[in-house]
Computed example of a mutant assay.
Amino acid sequence: MSSKEKGRAKAEQAKGKAKETVGRAVGNESMTAEGRAEKAKGDARQAKEKVKDVFKR
């Protein structure tokens, strides 16, 4: 996994989790959903990079 993409994936995951948590705390369902989506995007990016690493071997 390239360090740049790995960092981007982790940042997206953290930002999404924070948004989801804040959304739940204030009762904002839209923000909660947006956070979940962002976190999923980070998860997908991380999975993509792991697959790329497997095929590099």
Rank of each mutant, 00 (worst) to 15 (best):
Lys6Gln: 07
Lys56His: 08
Glu5Trp: 00
Val51Leu: 15
Val54Pro: 05
Glu29Val: 12
Ala25Gln: 12
Asp53Tyr: 08
Ala25Trp: 02
Glu20Arg: 10
Gly16Asp: 08
Gly35Arg: 01
Gln46Ile: 00
Glu49Leu: 14
Gln46Asn: 02
Lys6Ser: 12
Thr32Asp: 05
Glu5Leu: 09
Phe55Arg: 08
Ser30Ile: 13
Lys10Tyr: 04
Ala18Gln: 07
Ser2His: 10
Gly27Phe: 02
Val54Lys: 06
Glu38His: 11
Glu5Phe: 02
Gln13His: 15
Val22Met: 09
Arg36Gln: 14
Lys4Gly: 03
Arg45Val: 13
Ala44Asp: 13
Gly23Lys: 00
Lys6Trp: 09
Ser3Ile: 13
Arg57Gln: 08
Ala47Cys: 05
Ala44Ile: 10
Lys17Ser: 11
Val51His: 06
Ser2Ile: 07
Lys19Cys: 02
Arg36Met: 05
Ser2Val: 03
Ala14Gln: 12
Val26Met: 13
Lys52Tyr: 04
Val54Ala: 13
Glu20Ala: 13
Ala9His: 01
Ala11Tyr: 14
Gly42Phe: 01
Lys50Ala: 10
Ala9Lys: 01
Lys15Asn: 10
Glu49Tyr: 06
Gly42His: 02
Val51Met: 09
Ala18Ser: 14
Arg24Lys: 12
Ala9Asn: 02
Ala14Leu: 08
Arg57Glu: 14
Lys56Tyr: 05
Gly42Thr: 04
Glu12Pro: 00
Ala25Asp: 12
Ser3Glu: 14
Asp43Asn: 11
Ser2Met: 08
Thr32Tyr: 01
Thr32Val: 01
Glu29Thr: 11
Ala18Asn: 04
Thr21Gly: 10
Lys50Phe: 07
Thr21Lys: 15
Ser3Trp: 07
Thr32Ala: 10
Lys15Phe: 06
Glu49Asp: 10
Arg36Tyr: 00
Asp53Trp: 05
Gly27Tyr: 02
Glu49Val: 10
Arg24Ile: 02
Ser30Phe: 07
Thr32Glu: 15
Lys50Gly: 04
Glu20Ser: 13
Gly16Lys: 08
Gly7Ile: 02
Val54Asn: 10
Lys48Val: 14
Ala40Asn: 06
Lys52Ile: 06
Lys48Cys: 01
Glu38Phe: 05
Glu5Pro: 00
Lys15Met: 13
Asp43Tyr: 06
Arg24Leu: 11
Gly27Pro: 04
Arg45Ala: 13
Met1Leu: 07
Glu34His: 03
Ser3Lys: 05
Val51Arg: 10
Glu34Thr: 09
Phe55Ala: 09
Lys50Ser: 07
Ala11Ser: 13
Lys17Gly: 06
Gly35Trp: 01
Asp43Pro: 04
Val54Ile: 10
Gly27Cys: 03
Gln13Glu: 15
Lys56Phe: 11
Gly23Leu: 00
Met1Arg: 05
Gln46Thr: 01
Gly16Arg: 03
Ala47Phe: 07
Lys39Trp: 09
Lys39Asp: 15
